[in-house]
Nucleic acid binder design. Structure first.
Length: 554
RNA sequence: GGUCCUAUGGUCAAGCGGCUAAGACGCAACCCUCUCAAGGUUGAAUCGCGGGUUCGAUUCCCGCUAGGAUCACCA
């Protein structure tokens, strides 16, 4: 046995499998030629980031539009930063936005034949490959301490040379296998590094699906592939996992471009075919006139939980994200009149290359469109679902009478040009609470904002006249005609023009009368269509309110 | 700082050698109107700079500038 094999054997005596065995265990997928296999590979370090949702959306679209497979792999090799339970949260949040998986990590279990799908459970797989690398002198143990590495970096910075563990600075790469064996036997701690054969001064052309050819210097750094805790680093895990899981297109943020040479080199060194890469633009935020990456710490919209908590319809969030990804999506929604990204044909070529600034106004626009197109029934059920977790005060109203709630939501809905006053479920409560008597009483307990030009007596007389004459069975148009007549009796002109021409003859116009009614019924100067409100309230409740106002004024 | 990526209105962007430089969001005005939310009409607002190439550059090339990303036993 040669010394490299001995070294490999010493480090991984328990590993008996070979790379060939793994190839057999994870055979090529049985898919048609054009089908793409993509994945979303988050690390469980906290909440789902908006940028990650964007990446996941694109990955899923690429797979599904090509009849392929979309899977999720949990990259949990950083045990220090791991937030327990966030892996489960990740997939449930993904599901809220309609990102479901064909296979992969499901929280309590995995599904699919290429697992395990969490990297912490794949340690033995990585070790098989590393043992192979070690035996072939493609990797070596490194005994440098973090302190030594730090001083190396400092001196490199002082000497103004490219920092890093490479070439002559990579002292452990010159250790003979025999020397390494001695050190290991002495019990010295170590990591495993990849032995790079690259030349920093030589450039290679790498193809990116959305950026075209990228000209980057080769990697010459002997990167760590196995940490002292026995888990691989991202670079190595990515190569091994995407090889055995047969990923065909890797979609990830553009921050990965610079490490592309590392990944390509490792694929080549092992003799594997690298997947195609699509590096997605980052979602940015404007701060002090400068763009920056959307930050989880500073920006509430950076975590998707923000949209969930505020009650933005997930479909609207996805539509917004898709409009960033493919700007022709918006055009498509106008034609198709739906906002379902699953029905849209996504195109990687149409991705823009620089990071979009997150635009809450635009999301609001999408959200209003999406909600306006829902049936009252659907809105009622979705908003109720949301309220259960996020808005007890709204839930209270809903639970009093679901039918009534639905009637309220149905005002000026389910027609050609529906109302667009809700962008998110959290907007609902303040808009509708006046429909509930106890809330109404609270709202009108303060001063009623009646127009000062009109005396209390006139208000009262109009309200009385209205109660006496109003016909609740009329349709909208006829009702307003009748309101004009009722108002005229109390001295209101039937229209503004008539009023302006005869200022001394009238106390106001029908609009003023409507305002009095509106304030009396809702406590506010602004509300949806009065006729619709009266329909929902019903005669009894309406009169109760009008009488209440009359009493209050007297 | 090295390296890489990017560069059209405030934002998202179409454009791919010749156009009065699309469209959407936002903004403004007007119209409609019982208020609001809408809807309709109109408007303001863009090719970062400098060199080339070309009869002609927003478009192709180079440089500059600006912004971004990245340089860990984090992903």
């Amino acid at each position: 046995m040669d010394a490299f094999k001995q070294l490999a054997e010493l480090i991984f005596p328990e590993i008996q499998e070979t790379v060939g065995d793994l190839e057999k265990r994870y055979p090529p997928r049985n898919l048609k030629e054009t089908a793409q296999v993509t994945r979303f590979a988050p690390s469980p370090t906290g909440f789902l980031h908006t940028g990650s949702l964007f990446t996941a959306m694109v990955a899923k679209k690429v797979a599904k539009d090509s009849g392929g497979i979309f899977f999720l792999r949990l990259e949990d090799t950083d045990t220090k930063r791991e937030v327990s339970g966030s892996g489960e949260q990740l997939i449930s949040q993904l599901a809220e936005f309609g990102i479901t998986l064909d296979e992969g990590f499901l929280g309590d279990r995995d599904t699919g034949g290429y697992g395990p799908y969490r990297q912490s459970k794949r340690a033995s797989i990585y070790k098989v490959v590393i043992k192979h690398l070690l035996a072939n002198n493609l990797a070596y143990p490194c005994f440098c301490s973090t302190e030594e590495l730090d001083t190396l970096r400092k001196t490199q910075e002082e000497q103004k040379v490219v920092p890093g563990y490479y070439g002559k600075y990579a002292t452990c790469r010159y250790l003979s296998p025999e020397e390494s064996i001695v050190k290991i036997k002495e019990g010295q701690p170590y990591v495993i590094r990849f032995r790079s054969k690259g030349d920093h001064f030589r450039k290679t052309l790498i193809r990116d699906l959305i950026r075209g050819e990228i000209n980057i210097a080769e990697n010459d750094i002997d990167i760590v592939i196995l940490k002292s805790d026995g888990l691989p680093t991202y670079h190595f895990a990515h190569v091994v996992d995407d090889h055995f899981m047969h990923t065909t297109v890797v979609t990830r943020g553009e921050e990965w471009i610079s490490s592309l040479p590392i990944h390509v080199e490792i694929f080549n060194a092992i003799g594997w075919k690298a997947p195609e890469y699509a590096h997605l633009p980052l979602i940015m935020k404007l701060e002090n006139g400068n763009k920056r990456k959307l930050s989880k710490r500073k920006d509430e919209e950076a975590a998707v939980s923000f949209f969930i908590e505020d009650g933005y319809p997930p479909r609207a969030v996805m539509a917004y994200l898709m409009s960033i990804a493919n700007s022709n999506f918006e055009e498509w929604t106008e034609k198709s009149n739906i906002y379902d990204i699953d029905k849209f044909t996504f195109n990687l070529d149409k991705m823009s290359l620089d990071g979009a600034l997150f635009d809450l106004d635009k999301l609001t626009f999408f959200a209003k469109e999406v909600i306006a197109r829902m049936s009252a029934h659907r809105l009622a059920s979705l908003s109720k679902k949301w309220a259960i977790n996020h808005a007890p005060e709204l839930l209270d109203l809903i639970n009093r009478n679901t039918d009534y709630y639905e009637q309220i939501l149905n005002i000026e809905r389910e027609k050609e040009n529906p109302r667009k006053d809700f962008a998110k479920y959290s907007d609902i409560y303040s808009h509708i609470r006046f429909f509930y008597h106890d809330h109404y009483l609270n709202l009108v307990s303060v001063d009623l904002p009646f127009d000062e030009r009109i005396t209390k007596d006139k208000v009262i007389s109009f309200l009385r006249g209205f109660m006496k004459a109003n016909d609740y069975t009329l349709d909208n148009d006829d009702w307003f005609l009748s309101l004009k007549e009722i108002a005229l009796i109390s001295g209101f002109a039937p229209n503004n023009k008539e009023y302006k021409n005869n200022l001394d003859k009238y106390i106001g116009h029908v609009g003023d009368a409507a305002e009095i009614l509106r304030i009396s019924l809702t406590g506010s100067k602004n509300s949806p269509n009065l006729w619709a409100i009266l329909q929902v309230l019903g005669q009894e409740e309406a009169e109760k309110r009008l009488n209440y106002v009359i009493e209050k004024l007297r």
